[in-house]
Design a protein around this nucleic acid. Structure first.
Lengths: 243, 243
DNA sequence: CGGTGACTTGACCTCTGTCAAGAGAAGTGG
DNA sequence: CCACTTCTCTTGACAGAGGTCAAGTCACCG
């Protein structure tokens, strides 16, 4: 099976792709996979031989802490078009799992393909590199949010980011989107207790910023949400400034 | 001036360098620069034409928040050998400043040099890529620490990381090191108020884990500090597993 | 010697975690 | 169809962690 157009469009948001680059990408064999909610898509470990790209749904990077306290932390979310564990190709393996949030479709790419690209396609390599750095940019923004926002604004910031990212890839419009993250998982992501996440959700509802029923979320007041969260989408690198 | 051996040793910790790679690195012209404590070494902005490597001291990535509340967040620290803003080369510019923590020496490298390397030295490119991904790995670990640790353990985790990183590059031995971070800056980094950072410092002192006078820190009980912080240095990628 | 800035401490209040209990939806087996 | 279980969401009460204000100490420096 061939590589999906999602990821190609993702790269094209960053920079122009030559015909040779496009041909090389389309020649890349992939393996399609469908995951059930909560399923582990990628195990952590020292040696991976493939990496996966998101086609549909939302996935997350999950760090399980040692010491059987059961504590776990989510350090990243992924939407269609994201190359989820590309860093596992350049580093030696992963320190975290990748799990499905809701139903998910991905496609796996063999690392041998990536090795060949990094040897012979410097421009394509640079775009892959860049994709991993946008990831790191999001990490930094999450650190900023965690250090500077209170629970309600922190949650609001996450909603702004998810909607923006889903909207860019065409998976959400009209300020409405589906987010199958459980409140328990939001707690693992934001660093609060599940009960406090519930308080934050209630706060956003009481302020009239969102309608939130189950996994379906409608943003009622985008400007208000952005103001509360001090959200500035620059870090998502959505502009297409050619390198 | 030629590139410092610090960064070369940094790369060699990851993987073997061929003679051609070494020669290319040593042929790279650099500009030496000395910065005073608190000085801004790199300004944020959309277009950078050079990146800098740490020679001596400690520097930090500083995000200033909009809205003139004066709030700012530190999202990374750098020790000798680190390629501080290499990501500014692949992305288009930086979303944060780089500031000197205590007296600092760096050397700047022109992006045109890096462009040439990424075109003709795929193995070297991969090592540079890897360096930026270790950065991202540290970001993830900071997210995990922020989400799962209380203030005293969070501070302890930071001390473990800094000592380990300084020790690897030979800038700290015998569980003693110099850390010119002010408590106010620690607050910007850990996400607490300066006063609460002071409480965390006192807690570590009262537990007999550290002796901490001004910028001079001695770890009195490494195992105790590691246990409190649940510190696991795997994420720093210190092993030299060849790719 | 006065001024500045970092560090330190105490008092008080807000934010967040923990425990406990109940409401509602979804699935199972009789 | 109806108990029965399970899981999530929800809420209240209370305790502990962390923020804010205020004051005081100390080293450094002009």
């Amino acid at each position: 099976m061939a590589i999906s157009e999602y990821f190609i469009r993702y790269l094209q948001r960053c920079d122009h792709l030559s015909d040779a680059d496009l041909a090389r990408l389309r020649a890349m064999p992939t393996r399609h996979y469908q995951a059930a909610p909560g399923e582990v898509i990628v195990e952590p470990g020292p040696k991976a031989s493939q990496s996966c790209m998101m086609l549909r749904g939302i996935s997350a990077r999950l760090h399980r802490l040692k010491g059987r306290s059961g504590q776990q932390v989510i350090t990243a979310l992924h939407v269609p078009g994201d190359f989820v564990d590309l860093h596992g190709f350049v580093l030696n393996g992963l320190s975290h799992a990748v799990i499905a949030i809701g139903p998910v479709e991905v496609e796996f790419v063999d690392h041998s393909e990536l090795v060949e690209i990094t040897r012979n396609y410097p421009h394509l390599t640079r775009l892959l590199w860049r994709a991993t750095l946008i990831d790191a940019e999001i990490h930094r923004q999450w650190l900023v949010a965690a250090a500077s926002l209170r629970s309600n604004a922190h949650l609001a910031h996450l909603l702004c980011e998810i909607y923006t990212r889903l909207n860019v890839v065409g998976a959400a419009t009209d300020l409405h989107f589906s987010m199958p993250l459980l409140q328990r998982e939001l707690a693992d992501l934001l660093g609060y207790s599940p009960i406090h996440v519930n308080r934050a959700v209630r706060d956003l509802r009481d302020r009239g910023l969102v309608r939130w029923v189950g996994a379906e979320i409608t943003i009622l007041d985008w400007d208000g949400l952005v103001r509360l969260a001090r959200f500035d989408p620059d870090y998502l690198d959505l502009g297409r400034e050619p390198t």
